[in-house]
């Protein structure tokens, strides 16, 4: 912007008028940039306040019954208990799939692959997986998990098309779809954690006669656990908030039953489930009286925001802890 004028002109002050003009221009730019940044900050705070002020009264009414009661009268009344349970079930199952795959992929990339061409292909794939639109994961989940694998399983197990066990939307398929979506988050964070473990530790272990896998499993991984945990928490936060991938792979409008085996608290992965984000979407766009359920919409949104913020906050704290440790 000021490229065409020699920089020295300002400091030498050849002409006080020009200098004053430049000063004014700088002040204007300063005001513009800091103003814009602070405006954004103010806006974000305002946004959070809007959700909190409108959501908190409903959430906290009658001893927080909103958090554990079921929706009632269609969706018009009641709480989000099943939706919270479904969200937890989803992220637990998702982590069960995404964490091992993500951690092992990172171990391969950092500890084994080195500069091999295949590692570049894996990295490119991970980067691109992170950029795939979430609705495309939803399409993939329907076609691959629900229809291809699910119906295939039903064929093997002898379930009919009319009465499928696996060939329909289910918690398992939603969790697998979501696991694909969060895989890059786990990988990137685990890689960072592994790279932060000093090479000297590996050398020491190898020098003592440990094999490479012994070195990794007993020396490197324990050191990297905070970083792996950060990645898991961030991916859980992402998984809890995404809706598009589960629209057709498992989330349900309104269910009386939790996705568990009857009479137990063990998650039944073949059932459909209610989910917080999906619940917000349904309440805000599909409920019979959108204005009437507005308080419940704000309250559900507040609950989802609180969960994701708590998780993100935990991840940020954890990350700064292990970064400090890595520097030492």
């Amino acid at each position: 912007m000021v490229m065409d004028t020699p920089l020295s002109a300002t400091s030498q002050g050849s002409d006080p008028q020009i200098q004053a003009f430049k000063k004014a221009r700088e002040n204007f730019l300063a005001g513009l940039l800091s103003g814009m940044s602070w405006l954004l900050v103010a806006f974000i705070i305002l946004f959070l306040l809007t959700i909190t002020i409108n959501g908190w009264p409903t959430v906290s009414a009658n001893g927080f019954e909103f958090l554990y009661t079921s929706p009632d009268k269609g969706l018009d009344e009641g709480g989000v208990g099943p939706a919270i349970f479904g969200t937890i079930a989803l992220v637990v199952l998702m982590t069960f799939f995404a964490l091992p795959v993500g951690v092992f992929t990172s171990i391969y990339l950092v500890e084994y692959a080195g500069g091999k061409p295949f590692s570049r292909i894996i990295r490119a794939a991970v980067n691109n997986l992170a950029g795939v639109p979430s609705i495309v994961f939803g399409l993939f989940g329907v076609a691959f998990f629900v229809l291809f694998i699910g119906r295939g399983l039903d064929g093997l197990l002898g379930y009919s098309l009319a009465n499928p066990l696996w060939g329909k939307p289910a918690l398992l398929w939603a969790a697998l779809t979501m696991a694909l979506l969060v895989l890059p988050i786990v990988i990137v964070n685990t890689e960072e954690a592994l790279l932060a473990v000093p090479v000297s530790l590996r050398s020491a272990s190898l020098a003592l006669g440990a094999t490479q896998w012994e070195t990794i499993s007993r020396v490197v991984l324990p050191q990297a656990i905070p970083g792996i945990l950060t990645g898991s928490i961030l991916s859980i936060s992402r998984g809890a908030g995404e809706v598009a991938p589960i629209l057709f792979t498992g989330a349900a409008f309104l269910l009386q039953d939790l996705p568990v085996f009857p009479g137990t608290v063990i998650i039944d992965p073949s059932k459909q489930f209610m989910e917080l984000g999906y619940h917000i979407f349904i309440l805000a766009t599909q409920s019979s009286d959108v204005e009437k359920t507005r308080p419940a919409q704000y309250a559900s949104t507040f609950v989802l925001l609180a969960i994701t913020f708590f998780l993100n906050f935990a991840a940020i704290i954890l990350r700064s802890q292990f970064r400090k440790r890595a520097i030492r």
Binding site: G241, E242, I280, F281, L305
Partner: peptide
């Protein structure tokens, strides 16, 4: 950056 898109959609 951590706000779920469905929340922003609602907003």
């Amino acid at each position: 950056a951590g706000v779920p898109s469905v929340v922003l959609g609602f907003f």
